[in-house]
């Protein structure tokens, strides 16, 4: 899985998926960073809309750091 973020595209490896209080919790690693995505019903209409990468990245607890990346 890949995640677009303010520091470019990063690999995301899922280590586990669980359900907590009606939220789907995905735990994994964003590169070397331990990451966690919590998705609630209220998030569903948002996903895929305007924020795209930044919101997902922020949800992962990723602090944006700018790095110029070439393709």
């Amino acid at each position: 899985m890949k995640v677009t973020s303010p520091i470019g595209e990063l690999p995301f490896v899922v280590r586990g998926v669980s359900l907590h209080d009606g939220h789907v919790v995905v735990e994994g690693e964003l590169g070397a960073w331990r990451s966690r995505i919590e998705v609630g019903a209220e998030d569903l209409p948002m996903l895929g809309r305007a924020f795209r990468g930044p919101l997902i990245a922020a949800g992962l607890g990723l602090a944006g750091i700018a790095l110029l990346r070439r393709r």
Binding site: I7, L10, P11, L30, L67, R69, R70
Partner: peptide, 12 residues
Amino acid sequence: DRIPVPGGVHGW
């Protein structure tokens, strides 16, 4: 490296 992947500007 402050980025969680290696590669810098050339990418992981």
